[in-house]
Structure formats: C-alpha cells, structure tokens
Design a protein around this nucleic acid. Structure first.
Length: 682
DNA sequence: TACACTCCAA
C-alpha cells in the first residue's frame, strides 16, 4: 500500500498532466488520461473535480456531466465546477436545474454561480430565492455573493432591490459600483447614474478596468464630453487606452458626443482591434452621418481579416439607409444571409430600415414577413415607414393588427400613428390616441407627439387651434412645431397668422437653414419684403450659411451626386438637352416656373435657368437617360424638395410614364401619373 | 492541503 504522501504526489502529477493536456487543447489526450485515472487511482473527490474542470474548460460540458454522475459522492466544488461549465457554454438553465437536484453542499461559490445564472436568464424569482437562502445561511455578506445578487437585481430591472443591497455594503467596491451604474444606464435612469459617478470620481485609484468602461458608457449616454475627456486622461495614466474594452468604450463615447475624429483616434491606438472595436468606430461614423466612411471601414475590416458579426451588418446597413444606397444594402443583406447572420433581430430591423429609407416599403414588408421573430422596433419601422411613404391607411392597419396580436406599442409607435392620423385628417382619433390610448399603455407624450398633433390640426385647416395647442402644451420653444404651422399658413394662405408665427420663430433664433428658407418663402409669398430682409439679416448674424442643395441617384453600382447649379458633371451637356426637351413637354401640359422659390434679385429669364439647374431635376434627368424605360427612379435630396421641382417632377412622371421616388430631408414623395403620395402637403 | 466565484465594449 502506497503511503498517503505517495498517493498525494501521484494525484498532483495526474492533475498536472491533465491540465497541460487541457491547456494544449488536446481533448483525446485528456480522454486517455481520464481512462487511466479511473483504472489506476482510488476515487478521490479532488481528482475527479479536476476532471470536471478540465472537460468544462475544453467546452465538453457533456463529458464533465458524465464524470459528475459517475462520482460516488460530490462536494460543493464539484457542483460549482459543473454549474460554471454550463454557464460558460451559455446553458444557464441547465446550471440552475443542477442546483435543484443538488446533493452537494451549498457554499458561497455555488450560491454566487446560481445567482449569476439567474441574472443571465433574467429570473427574478430564482434570483430572489437564492438571495433568501444566502441570507438564511449567513452567506449574504460574502463579497462574491453580494455582488452577484446586486448584479442579478440590476439585470432583472429591480433597481429598488439593488439599491437596498448596495446601501448595506460598506466601503468602495468596484464590482458593485459598476453594476449599479450599468443597471441605471440600462433603465435610462441617468439622474441616478450621475450621482454614483459623481461619488466615485474622487476614488479613481480604486477603479478597475471595467469601471472605466462603465463610466465611459455613462458619459456616452449623457453626451458629457467634458467628463469623458477627464476619464480618458485618467485611463492614459494606466495605459488603459490600449485595452480593447476601454478603447472601444472610448470610441463609443466620442462617437456619441459627435466627435467622429476623436473616435477614430481612440480606435487607431488600439494594438489589437476586434470586431467590437471595428463596429464601434463604424457606429461613430454612422451616428455622425459620415456613411461613406463607415462603409469604407467595413471593407478595411474585411481586409484585416476580422469577420463581421450581426452588429457589424446592422451598422453597415444603417449606413446604406443613410445614403439610401439600395443596391449596396441589398448586397449586404445577401452577405448577411450567406454568413448566417440574417435571422438576427438587429439585422432584420436594419434591413427593414434600409429598404424603408431607400424608398422601397414593399421590400421592408417582405423582410418583416420573413423574420422568425420581431420586436416593437420592427413594428415601428413598418408603421413609420408606411407613414413616411404617404400610406397612412396601411400604417393604421398595421397598428391595429399589432394591437390585436398583443404587441405593446411604444413611444415611437405613436409618433407613426399620429402622423398617419394627420395625413388622413383623423382629428378626433388623433386626440383619442394622444389622451387615452397612450395613457393606457403608460407612454408619456413627448414633443414629437405634440408636433404631430399640431400637424394634424393644421392639415385639417384648424390653424388657430394649432396655435393654441402649441402654447397650451408648452412646445413653443421648439421651432419644429412652429415650422409645421408656418407651412400650413402658406398652404391656406393665412398670411396674418403666418406673420405672427414667423415672428415667434425668429425670436427662437434657429440655426438650421431649412427654417430660414421656409421663413423667407413665407414672407415672399405674403409680399412682405421687409420680412425677407429681416430673415437674411438674422441668418448672417447667426452665421447660418446657405447649405447647398445636393441630390444623388444610384445607377448601376455608382452613386452620382449633383449640386444645384453645378455644371461640371461630365455629362452636363447631354443632361441639359434632355432637360430642356422635358421642360418644353411639361409646359405644354401646364407647367409654369415658380419664381417665388428663387431668393436672388435677378431677371426672370435668369430665374428660369436657375430653377432648371436645381439638383433634383439634374439627378432625375440623369436617371431617365441611364435607366431602361419603365424602371422606377429613386432620388435622394439633403434638403426638402422645392415647390417648383415638386410640380415639375409630377408632370415629368406623366410625360415619361415613370414612377419617381424622391426622398427628401423630411419624407418620401412617391410620384406616379402626376400624383404624389404626399398629397402636395409636406 | 489541493478544486472554484461576481462586473464591461457595438
């Protein structure tokens, strides 16, 4: 009989080789050693626990389970090892099931694993029971248990419970603080995360790596560039800007704070870039409307050999949506399908968004119908997509269908619904949704909803009520609502009210050119040249420059960009000839150039030429020349389409028998047979 | 005596 010391030595040796084999990833060697151990050695719980551990680390949790089942008895470590094995392969439910049949002791390790598994499956019930058990067993004060419990409550959206646990903890604990901040961020309770972040800014030396990631996430949500910069400076002291987690969080923070260049800078210094860092920097560009740069990064990433995942596809598709690049989006969708990412919710939603923003609501619907599962975002995309395309009836139909299948509408859903009501002139229904149904679903109306209501009243011609509505609901500080009313004053030729509204808008000192153009048009139509002068003066004072009108169209794989009065396009002569021809044709059926649109003090003849070279007309003619007869033409414009072009394009759709879809800064105009889906109201 | 545990980025 070997001495006890000798057996211990053998066990140590066996464990060492076992671990070496596992570290080398040599599964067949592990299995051979397993057989040898069973044959040669007496049962020893620690040795068998090592077997469980090694199998679990090799991702062979089934084999780990076999070892576990074959043991004559187990201890808490055996249970904990198998539970962690299940958890690390994502089988949290199996981990919890093991707990229920437990014939091993429960200690603080097992409990924290159980609580962590409850957190992963978001089971408040299970997590609470474990917490209760921990309290009874006197283990609730153990730091690991405590942190796991805290995190579980955060994951299950029970911040009140989490706060109670947090307040009972003594001293600074990075894990606990990180969990609390993330919990509040996930729930959108920024006022609460502000307090925690403020409380730990003085203890930076006790932060861990995750704290940097978490606090940067807070800065991103708050768009707090000042605090974000301070955290960045602190991170530099520890060289944490090189850590891929911290680096990606920095990229995200700068992106959300509208600093695409700084995001790129944080990305560039990363020695090891993974799919998350690449996706983060693409997102930064997309959020800052630098869509081409984002798509270029997508190509660079592939060149670097990093494989895109579902988030990467979603961001790339959102960039295509921004450009209305239907063909590129289509190609990306095909790639996502081929690589098996297509059935992810984020990809399906991004595809729907891309199709919808590219003017193809039919394709968006096709994606929607083929999605294995959808969420409220998918429903919202369909509803708002229909509304933007002027298909309000369809939007309402989908909304009612959504309710009938028990889907809960959100804040965004009601924006789509109310704008559909506005298009259909359903004033009473609109107020019913705003005052009754939104309350029933616990959605607090925001300025977007109130703005829809203003549009609804305006469209019904109830301009005075719209004015009162703005004042009563305190949205008078928002130029968007006034702008809506101002457009209607022009349409209904109510220049008295229009003048009052214009004064209100001027007082708000807006920064966007679109508003000034609208104001100027209003004054011009009302023959108030003093107003036009005032508008120009304020524009100059506020440094608002006239943003050039840009339109673009995709033909084949190329995107062709046209700026207004830009006569440098290589095919401008051909375009001009065709355009003059078309203008003659539409003049024959009633087109009269609308000089009121032109703001310059020039002769009428020059004005006519000016109008002719509007970017959307150039893009349209280019499309007519380069696409086969009968094909739908899709044009994008950075500003709102101008009155004159709107009329001209409607008539051109008649004389050429083409369907023409124009996406402007606000909505879609689906023009066919001389009629526009916007009903000439936009 | 040996075996193990909680928080993070798009």
């Amino acid at each position: 009989m070997a001495s006890p010391g000798g057996a211990a030595l053998q066990r140590h040796a066996a464990v060492a080789v076992l671990r070496a084999a596992a570290a080398a990833g040599d599964l067949s060697r592990v299995k051979a050693l397993h057989a040898q151990i069973i044959r040669a050695a007496h049962f020893h719980v620690v040795l068998h626990n090592n077997l469980i551990s090694v199998y679990a680390k090799c991702g062979q949790v089934g084999l780990a389970r076999k070892v576990f089942d074959a043991m004559p008895f187990r201890n808490a470590v055996s249970g904990n090892l198998l539970m962690s094995g299940y958890s690390s392969s994502g089988r949290h439910k199996d981990s919890l099931a093991l707990l229920r049949e437990a014939d091993f002791g429960l200690n603080e390790y097992v409990l924290s694993a159980a609580v962590a598994a409850s957190a992963h499956v978001r089971s408040y019930e299970m997590g609470r029971q474990c917490h209760g058990y921990a309290v009874k067993a006197g283990l609730a004060g153990q730091p690991y248990v405590c942190n796991a419990v805290l995190h579980m409550y955060c994951q299950c959206a029970r911040m009140e419970d989490a706060v109670k646990v947090f307040e009972n903890m003594s001293g600074f604990d990075a894990f606990a603080v990180n969990s609390m901040i993330n919990g509040f961020l996930d729930r959108g309770q920024l006022d609460c995360s502000v307090r925690i972040v403020a409380g730990i800014m003085g203890e930076v030396e006790r932060w861990d790596d995750v704290s940097y990631v978490t606090v940067l996430g807070h800065c991103a949500s708050m768009k707090d560039l000042v605090l974000g910069g301070q955290v960045h400076a602190q991170a530099l002291k520890r060289r944490l800007e090189l850590n891929v987690f911290v680096g990606s969080a920095l990229v995200d923070m700068y992106g959300k704070c509208d600093r695409a260049n700084d995001a790129q800078g944080a990305f560039d210094v990363l020695p090891e870039k993974n799919v998350v860092s690449w996706t983060a920097v693409m997102t930064a560009y997309t959020q800052n409307e630098l869509y081409e740069d984002a798509l270029q990064l997508f190509l660079d990433m592939e060149t670097e050999g990093v494989k895109p995942n579902e988030f990467t596809y979603a961001v790339a598709l959102n960039s295509c949506a921004g450009l209305a690049a239907l063909r590129n989006g289509n190609a990306l969708g095909a790639c996502a399908l081929k690589t098996g990412h297509w059935d992810h919710l984020v990809v399906g939603n991004a595809l729907m968004n891309m199709y919808s923003k590219s003017g193809s609501i039919e394709d968006a619907c096709r994606v929607f119908n083929s999605m294995p599962l959808c969420d409220v975002v998918s429903w919202n995309l369909i509803i708002t997509g229909y509304a933007h395309h002027g298909l309000a009836r369809e939007a309402m139909e989908v909304f009612h269908y959504m309710l009938s299948v028990g889907e809960v509408p959100s804040y965004v859903t009601f924006i789509g619904v109310l704008s559909a009501c506005a298009q259909l002139g359903l004033v009473d229904e609109g107020f019913y949704y705003l005052n009754t149904m939104m309350k029933a679903f616990g959605v607090t109306p925001g300025k977007e909803h109130y703005t829809c209501m203003v549009g609804l009243l305006c469209r019904a011609g109830r301009l005075d009520e719209a004015e009162r509505f703005i004042v009563d609901n305190c949205i008078g500080t928002d130029a968007v609502a006034w702008r809506s009313l101002l457009s209607s004053c022009q349409i209904y030729k109510n220049y008295g009210l229009g003048h009052r509204v214009a004064e209100q808008i001027l007082q708000l000192k807006p920064n966007d050119i679109g508003t000034y153009v609208l104001l100027s048009n209003m004054y011009a139509k009302a023959n108030r040249w003093d107003g036009v002068v005032k508008v120009r003066k304020q524009m100059k004072e506020r440094g608002v420059r006239k943003e050039p009108g840009v339109s673009w169209i995709q033909v084949g794989t190329d995107v062709h960009v046209f700026t207004s009065e830009d006569k440098v396009h290589p095919q401008i002569d051909q375009i001009t000839i065709k355009l003059e021809e078309l203008i003659d044709q539409i003049k024959a059926i009633g087109y009269v150039p609308n000089f009121a649109v032109v703001l310059h003090d020039i002769e009428d003849e020059q004005k006519e030429e000016h109008l002719m070279y509007h970017s959307e007309k150039l893009a349209l003619v280019f499309g007519l020349i380069h696409t086969p007869t009968g094909e739908t033409i899709r044009i994008m414009k950075n500003l709102r389409i101008c009155d004159d072009c709107h009329v001209a394009i409607k008539l051109i759709s008649t004389v050429t028998s083409r369907k023409i879809v124009v996406r402007d800064a606000v909505r879609f105009h689906c023009i066919e047979g001389g009629v526009c889906s916007c009903d000439d109201y936009w």
